[in-house]
Structures are given as structure tokens and as C-alpha cells.
Design a binder for these strands. Structure first.
Lengths: 230, 230
DNA sequence: CCGTTTTCCTGAACACGTTCAAAAAAGTTC
DNA sequence: GAACTTTTTTGAACGTGTTCAGGAAAACGG
């Protein structure tokens, strides 16, 4: 019962095939030519299907992005789970997760900008805080929950509870940087990851200091309020 | 020589009038009906001008947003400067600045979403990190420089140097929250401002502690690198 | 003033995302 | 397999942002 799908649910084997055909055509063209350059007519043509039929399965061009989200998230999941099992420290896990995320997204760098563009619009069903994308977002945060769950570091329980969400936000920030990064092989993004992960590790230690308790409590209360927004 | 203007520079009094006429029509309609509902044809019609003429002065619908940026920034400036003169503490100044920013933007809440939507796209000339919008961005950061400049608090010089940029980023975050805020009278946004300003004030004190020097140095070096992006 | 150049302005045209009535095909029921 | 329902598929149409060749008006130079 994947209620995340805003796409038309197929009632037929044939329908399922057609839908997959359209999605694959779309992702291929998107990857090659980016978002603006890829027209719905071209997608339909490549899938050997009428224009209206493409709209039967995907309510809009933006809905194809949601499908993209879902697909890359699963790709990333497959790549990152073994790494989480192998590493035990929060630092090493975070490092592995982020690097794999970027390398998974890399083929779509050209059109990832639009992804964020639509995501930032509160009226869009794709913005990360909208109800429509709640399931996908939740899946994504869940990954960070697993990352934090059985790590050995001594972290106060109040911070530990909010940490998955905070790390998810942080990882969104990294992606935003990556989108704007035009350095060769995204060297700058990878360097940013290395440095921020290191810094974050230190900050978590700091925030875990008993002396920091009052400030930490305040900050965490604020974060909790922020989360209600969605 | 305001090079921020991507709009056609007028060579004639008549041209100047027509351009202003179009912009005013646009802002009026934008304010009333939001971005998507406001068509270029409607703008041209209200200004009693041909469609092509609107495009003569504003290269695209998005360029009208840039004009919007500029105008609201100036409105905000007029409102906030007296407050900066009146208050001396960083906390009070920041509070006043942010509250006035939100109230200045309020009439355009409906279409502010699109503003961020386009701003988040790295290919758009409107994204805050793009060259095209550099002058406007710089003006905006300059305001925070003034805010920090003659404040009395004892802040390490390294932090003081980066603080305007950091506060600018923070204020962008507040606006992002405001865009998504549908609470009555934006009560939640104002509460967020109150709380975060308070917290920020505490954090700055904390970061100014000599014990924090190593972490602070690291973090600031990172921020400096991040800034190069634009 | 007239000729020329620059600026302002127009309306038709294009490609796009999207919608929709209705045809075709597939599935269901008896 | 016939009548009916549901699902899939089509192609034409609409309104949109944007472009462009060229006309109208103003500025300029003699």
C-alpha cells in the first residue's frame, strides 16, 4: 500500500508495462538532456505512446520527479546498507552514507537543480515538507535512524532522539551544495563532506557535555517545534 | 551603474514610464492573484501595452521577480535603518530587522513561494548565488554588516568577520520558514524569530569563549570555503 | 526641415505542459 | 460469446511563456 505514489495505479499487466516504459524513457531523456530540454512529447514518442497516455500514468511532468526520487533512494539504500553494517562509528557511517548518496545522484546532476527548484515551492506536491512526499521523506529519515540507532558513542538521549532528523537536514544541505558544485568530479562536495562530518562529530561531542545541557535543551525544543511544520 | 538590472535599460523618458507602468501592473496582479495566476498577457493588458512590449523591458516573467526583490529590499531598508540607530545590542537589532522583514514581505506571501522556487534553481539567473543577483545579495549582506559593525558585544574578530554572512544565511532560513507558514498572522514565524534570536545570542557568546577557539576556527574556515561557491 | 539611426512597440507565431471527449482494447459477468 | 464495465489509449484543443520580423515613433545630425 505505497500511498506515496501520486501516479495512477495500474489495474492491468499491460498498464504496468506501459507505465514502466514511460518512466524509463523519461529517466533516460532526463539524464541525457536535463529537465527543461526533455519534453513530454519526446518522452511519449520515445516510449512509442501518445502524449495523452503519458499523462494518464503521470499526472504531470513533476510527478516523474517523484518517481525519480523513489528510484534513486532505493538505489542508494542498496549501496549503503552494507556499509552501515561494516562500520560502527557514527563518523564513518555518515561519511560512507553521504559519499554513496552523491555518487548515486551523480548521473542526474544536470537535472537535479529542478528537483530542488520544485521542492522549494510550498505549492508543489514535491516539496519535502508536503503531505504527498511524507512517505518518501520518512523513508529517508528512517535511514538516519538506523545509522544512529546502534552506534556506540555516548550521546544524551534527548539529542539522540532528534539526531536522525538533524542529520537528514544536514544531508539535504550537502545535496544543495552538490547541485551548485561545478568543480571537476565534484571534488569540492566531497571535500565539504569530509570536513563537515569531522566537524559534526566534534560538535556532537561538545553538545553532549553536561555543561551544554541548558543550551542543548533549548535548541532541541526549537527543533521539535520546527518539525511540526509539515 | 546598477548592473544588477537584467532588465532593458531605457533610453527615453517615455520608455522609463512604460517600464514602471508594466512593473506596477505586474506587482499589483502578483499581489492579488499570485504568480501562476498572473499571466504576462494580463500584465500587458493592465498596463495597456502589447505583450511583446512587456518582453522588451523584462526579458522574462522571472525578471519581474528580480524587480520585486529590489523593491522590497528598499522598502525594508527604509523601515529598518531607524531601528538600527535606536538599538545598540545585537539581539535587539536582529529582532527588529527580522520582524520588519517579515512584515514588509507579508503582502506577497502568496507568491513568495515561487520566488524561492526559482531561486533554488542553479540555472536560474535569480538564484541567490548566481552572478546576476550578486549586487542584490551584496546589498542584503551589507545590511547585516552595518548591524554587526558598531555593536558593543565582545566578539572575536574572526567570528565578527563572518557574522554578517552567517546572519544573512540565517535570515534566509527564516524566510523559508515563513513561506511555508500558514498559521494565523504568521504567529509561528514570529515566535521562531523570537526564539532563534535568543538562542543565537547565546550561541555567539558561547562561540566567543576562548575554550571554543579551535572548533570555532575550524567552523569558520569551512564557512569561508563555502562562500567561494558563488 | 529631411534623412538616418535609435528606441519603442505590435501582433502573429511557436513549442510547451496540460486537459478532455471519445475511441479502442481488455476484462468481467452471465 | 454477447452485453456490459473498466481500463487504456488517442489526438485535437487550450492557454501559457517566449520569440521575432518588422512597423511606428522619437531622437539626432545636417
Amino acid at each position: 500500500m505505497n500511498s506515496a505514489e501520486k501516479t495512477k495505479s495500474t489495474k492491468t499487466v499491460k498498464g504496468e508495462q506501459t507505465k514502466a516504459l514511460i518512466l524509463n524513457s523519461a529517466l533516460g531523456l532526463l539524464r541525457e538532456h536535463g529537465y527543461e530540454q526533455t519534453t513530454m512529447r519526446a518522452i511519449a514518442k520515445k516510449a512509442d505512446v501518445s502524449l495523452g497516455n503519458a499523462y494518464h500514468y503521470f499526472g504531470s511532468k513533476e510527478h516523474l520527479i517523484q518517481a525519480f526520487y523513489h528510484r534513486t533512494h532505493e538505489e542508494h539504500l542498496v549501496a549503503v546498507l552494507p556499509a552501515l553494517r561494516k562500520e560502527t562509528s557514527l563518523k564513518a557511517r555518515l561519511l560512507a552514507l553521504l559519499r554513496l548518496k552523491i555518487s548515486t545522484l551523480e548521473p542526474y546532476h544536470e537535472f537535479a537543480g529542478v528537483l530542488f527548484k520544485t521542492a522549494a515551492d510550498p505549492h508543489s506536491p514535491l516539496n519535502p515538507f508536503a503531505d504527498d512526499s511524507a512517505p518518501t521523506r520518512h523513508d529517508s529519515i528512517k535511514l538516519f535512524e538506523e545509522l544512529v540507532a546502534d552506534t556506540k558513542a555516548r550521546i544524551p538521549s534527548d539529542l539522540r532522539a532528534e539526531l536522525p532528523y538533524l542529520l537528514w537536514l544536514y544531508h539535504m544541505g550537502i545535496i544543495l551544495f552538490w547541485i551548485h558544485d561545478s568543480s571537476p568530479k565534484r571534488a569540492r562536495t566531497y571535500r565539504l563532506i569530509d570536513q563537515t562530518v569531522d566537524l559534526l562529530d566534534k560538535l556532537i561531542s561538545l553538545a553532549s557535555n553536561p555543561l551544554m545541557r541548558p543550551v542543548r535543551k533549548r535548541a532541541l525544543k526549537l527543533v521539535a517545534e520546527l518539525r511540526e511544520l509539515g
